[in-house]
């Protein structure tokens, strides 16, 4: 785990190490935030808050190996705060910037595939693969039975074409 050493140094007060460790988690954090929040502005707020809170509390991290899990936990709480705050507010900015397509390649980014999923499946995929939450943790966060989480995960893999051996999604999609 590339961030583990940096997390260990960060615990001792090394700010640069903390920033390096956080940078390796940025995409995972963003995708996890997307499981809860529609707008990029809200995701940005939640992620910014997470960086600051994590820095304040890094000395309390008992095991550097759990750094990612710990940060994602903080992020999820921040996402919930944002949801709470914006509950009664109409968000006009719901545009999603769907990531960069590599020049010269006609390949659909995985993230774009995930975006095509129904929201109930998309959130679970994001939390499982980007947030690296366990089935149990996802069921607690989303208040769903574990069986439901498993079946939705399976369904998502089917749609994305990863449930069956030998099949790959190549360039383009229908």
């Amino acid at each position: 785990m590339e961030w583990s050493d940096d997390a260990s140094r960060a615990r001792k007060g090394d700010k640069d190490a903390f920033v390096r460790a956080m940078r390796t988690l940025e995409v995972s954090m963003y995708q996890t935030a997307k499981a809860f929040l529609r707008s990029d502005a809200d995701c940005a707020d939640a992620m910014q808050e997470t960086v600051l809170r994590a820095f304040r509390s890094i000395r309390g991290l008992k095991e550097p190996a759990y750094f990612k899990t710990w940060v994602i936990r903080i992020l999820i709480n921040e996402c919930k705060r944002v949801l709470q705050r914006t509950r009664n507010v109409m968000t006009l900015d719901v545009c999603y910037d769907s990531g960069v397509r590599e020049a010269g390649y006609d390949r659909v980014e995985m993230r774009e595939w995930i975006d095509t999923l129904d929201e109930s499946l998309r959130s679970i995929v994001l939390l499982y693969y980007y947030g690296e939450l366990t089935i149990k943790e996802i069921s607690e966060e989303m208040d769903l039975p574990e069986g439901t989480v498993k079946s939705r995960l399976h369904r998502a893999r089917e749609i994305l074409g990863f449930a069956h051996a030998g099949q790959t999604k190549g360039a383009g999609h229908s």
């Binding site: 940025e26 990029d40 940005a44 992620m47 600051l52 910037d97 960069v100 590599e102 980014e109």
Partner: peptide
Amino acid sequence: TYELPSIVRDKLEAA
């Protein structure tokens, strides 16, 4: 590959 949206990138750098 993935690049964060600019609004997210900006906020992280500010943090």
